[in-house]
Design a protein around this nucleic acid. Structure first.
Length: 379
RNA sequence: GUGGGUAUAGCGUAGUUGGUUAACGCGCCAGAUUGUGGUUCUGGAGACCGAGGGUUCGAAUCCCUCUAUCCACC
């Protein structure tokens, strides 16, 4: 399924073949939690901004509209009219991010729905069943994502439980893929490495989950409060213990700089809310740093967000107009920024892929980091 | 013309029986956000309290005059 095309140092580029098409890596998966990219972006738009993979969320879709509704509608692909790969996150992160509303036990997690407060139980089997109903291309294992400041003792307990849960996920998805009414009988499963900032726990866990011979492996529980240098240290230590000939997915990361650094450490799948959330909040990513389109200095600026950018926003609209839309709370303002940011990320991933395949990643990375972290954005 | 009310930041308001650097919302100016709870969160600037005079140790608060404005009645 995964074909390693090139390596440049530890940076790797591959082709991941799925029933919904080929993914060229490194790739940034565009986050659409509730089966939609926030900011009024349609799946039609995604074609214009080079989206390869859309990411949705098991927990959120289970709560609303319900995974059984989506199954009856023919699965997530049909439902949202998107025929390329979809990855569904397992709901494990919500255990962590909705921490005030949960109880973790060996069998799984008890949530209170954030929509109507009703009690929900989700364990490895439930998560797999929901993801099978959604019929995503790639399902994620149901894990626990503990805060990085947890004690070593808790972390070890949590990671051991995540391993037992992975075993149950594998058994359940194998069972589900063989059922007659399964929409995507070829659904594949990625395992998730945990261990906080304890590198020995990380390494041991990476070795253990690698033995399961899954189609891909993710690193979770990073970018949750620890410093960048700690995150990079954990990647330095952990990634070599995950299979080189499988996708390596760093969950929830990150800034353009985070991505460039993580690629250099062997990661080739990413996702992050930054381009969408920051877009909704008026921030644009450019090769001259980050811009805040709310700023007064753009009031009479007739240039596009980024001169030379081929995104749907930059090919037509001025900074002044987008600033006005944002100030007036017109939805189009958000939409244009989200389109621009996703295009920027997707294009950067393409550049990264080309650089690795050309053996020029080191120079590319150095130059790109300098550009994206330029402070006086948008001149 | 007569009677009454109101004047506090760009706008709308709060300021307790007169008491140290006059508060709040919106707006304005910035900053945050890492497997998204969809207009969020955190800061900042900005008013010598309509003008002038008086009472008082001390006035946005009390008194007088003026100005502006609103309401009612002629």
């Amino acid at each position: 399924m995964y074909k390693l095309i090139a390596q440049d140092g530890r940076a790797k580029s591959g082709e991941f073949h799925t029933v919904h098409g080929v993914i060229q890596t490194p790739v940034f998966m565009n986050v659409g939690t509730a089966a939609a990219i926030k900011g009024a972006v349609s799946t039609e738009d995604l074609k214009d901004i080079k989206t390869q993979v859309e990411l949705s969320n098991t927990y959120h879709l289970h709560v609303r509209p319900g995974d059984k509704v989506i199954k009856q509608m023919g699965g997530l692909h049909k439902f949202m009219v998107w025929d390329k790969p979809i990855l569904t996150d397992s709901g494990g992160f919500q255990v962590f991010s909705l921490a005030k509303l949960r109880q973790i036990k060996e069998e799984g997690v008890y949530f209170n729905s954030h929509v109507d407060g009703r009690k929900i139980f989700m364990g490895p089997e439930e998560s797999m069943q929901i993801q099978s109903n959604l019929a995503s291309t790639i399902a994620m294992a149901f894990d626990e994502c503990p805060p990085s400041l947890e004690s070593r003792e808790y972390m070890q307990k949590s990671v051991d439980r995540t391993t037992r849960w992975l075993d149950r996920c594998i058994k359940e998805i194998d069972r589900l893929n063989k059922l007659e009414d399964t929409i995507n009988p070829n659904q594949i499963l990625f395992g998730i490495n945990q261990g906080g900032t304890f590198e020995d726990i990380r390494i041991e866990h990476a070795k253990r989950i690698s033995e399961f011979n899954l189609d891909g492996y993710a690193i979770g529980g990073l970018a949750v409060g620890e410093s960048h240098s700690e995150m990079y240290r954990i990647l330095d230590e952990t990634v070599p213990h995950l299979p080189l000939e499988k996708p390596t997915y760093l969950m929830g990361v990150g800034t353009p700089e985070n991505i460039l650094e993580s690629v250099d450490r062997g990661v080739d799948f990413f996702d992050c809310v930054y381009p969408t959330r920051n877009g909704r909040h008026g921030h644009a990513y450019t090769n001259k740093g980050k811009m805040n389109l709310f700023n007064a200095k753009y009031e009479l600026d007739s240039k596009p967000i980024e001169v030379g950018c081929g995104c749907p926003a930059c090919t037509l609209y001025s900074r002044a107009y987008i600033r006005h839309l944002l100030k007036a709370k017109e939805m189009l303002g958000m939409r244009l920024l989200v389109l621009h940011n996703l295009y920027f990320y997707n294009e950067m991933m393409e550049e990264i892929k080309d650089a690795i395949r050309a053996g020029e990643y080191t120079n590319y990375k150095k130059d790109k980091i300098e550009r994206v972290s330029y402070k006086e954005g948008g001149s």
